[in-house]
Nucleic acid binder design. Sequence first.
DNA 1: ACGACTTTGTGCCTGCGTTCACAAGCGGCT
DNA 2: AGCCGCTTGTGAACGCAGGCACAAAGTCGT
Lengths: 267, 267
Amino acid sequence: MAAQRDQGHNGDQPPATVADAPAREVTARDVPAARERARAIPEAAVARLAVYLRVLSAMGEDGVTTISSEELAAAAGVNSAKLRKDLSYIGSYGTRGVGYDVDVLISEIERILGLTRKHSVAVVGIGNLGHALANYGGFPSRGFPVAALFDVDSDLMGVPVGGIPVEHIEDIESICREREVTIGVIATPPSVAQDVCDRLVSGGVQCILNFAPVVLGVPDHVEVRKVDLAVEMQILSFHVARRADEAQAEVTVDGTRPGVGEAVVGR
Amino acid sequence: MAAQRDQGHNGDQPPATVADAPAREVTARDVPAARERARAIPEAAVARLAVYLRVLSAMGEDGVTTISSEELAAAAGVNSAKLRKDLSYIGSYGTRGVGYDVDVLISEIERILGLTRKHSVAVVGIGNLGHALANYGGFPSRGFPVAALFDVDSDLMGVPVGGIPVEHIEDIESICREREVTIGVIATPPSVAQDVCDRLVSGGVQCILNFAPVVLGVPDHVEVRKVDLAVEMQILSFHVARRADEAQAEVTVDGTRPGVGEAVVGR
DNA sequence: ACGACTTTGTGCCTGCGTTCACAAGCGGCT
DNA sequence: AGCCGCTTGTGAACGCAGGCACAAAGTCGT
């Protein structure tokens, strides 16, 4: 049991419950609890739901039909109480004494995540990363068909990448509108990221996944998620440094070896 | 006010103050050396420090020598109070009435993030994504030299990618040890990710950036950060769906009829 | 040299998210 | 059918992170 520890730390950006809007009074207790309505699902829980979905899909393919919160939690690398609470946000689909029906859970999570609709994706910036993204099988296989590719390089125009021809950045707006692209992926150099972002927004794109290391300005109705590889590395670097410090301190303080053993705490 | 809004929502994984380690007993280990050493910088703050560093570097190159918390906060897309608090975690390096010295701040953040030491990186899995990562200029330029590349495909052996020859996965352990790799990047298919991870750990790698959609099991002394593109997309998808729901609900809004159910919302 | 202005650093408060612990509920066994 | 044991669902407590607002501190102008 090699450590099913806490796993990756991603204390990224803001917390923000899904509920908040601009400055409305909200009063939170409307009552559309009728059937669906994803009310007040914590952002963090949404991220985990996506993970559960992946695990469940894999299990479903292995023929598993029922699973307990304990098992699923272990497979997803989280605490079982947290898992149950996460699932409770989307409704009660478990059977006490038994567990959850894998298929039911999959459908419900997909429904909540909005995966029942197709979300066409446009990738902008067909450099190394853009290339990888355009070819990334994980997108289409999970309901995110790549509908368009864009770049500025005229040598790339019309060249098919992953089966889709590259088009010019100038045409982002019209093409996105035409193909009903809802998600834009920015994999351009930072200098043009904002421009590209604006074009995507003009084209009706509602959500943006930004790989460029810049802070994008967008209207309130557009959602941006940022993935900054350098930042990820620096966070890791911080942890390495912290460990080194700790190890050193440990020696000075009580002479216990840091590395091995989980009985670290003794006492 | 076009919208320099809150920017991306990344309520990813756990919160966890940098202090915690096991998930064991709460008792002991609160007081020990850990506190003294790692000044308990919140994980979220670390992530932001990396962002500040990027902004500051850019400003420094533009000849800016001094900056106020307000300006820096705006450039980094955060609240100025939060920024000041983040900076206070690493010490007091500002001058009241003036602001912060850009160069000083850069050095201090670099020190805290452990960027004074070199962190050699190994990329495993030279597919589309691995290719992109190996060529990614953001790594070496920020103090993360790519020291080794690995894959299983024998056709790739020895082929230089981004100037570095690809080596076989079998040799991960020895090469990582030899070249003192501290950070491993996994860009392989999920099926082999755990195996690769184990090899990296055996090779002395302390931190892993995992792009494979699997939950890795690692010893306690290894740090893992996960970047799952499909999960990112699904989170965006959720927000699209939520927006659609809200828009629809807007019509019914403010009926203020508590009516049935009462819902579970408030407490 | 002194006062007014600017900006930092931080104590406090609020609120979200995580965890604990347990009652309710359901299936299986006798 | 009734009891027993297992697992869910959730109320409650806790802890961390974010935001406000202000006192401390230093600078600039006169």
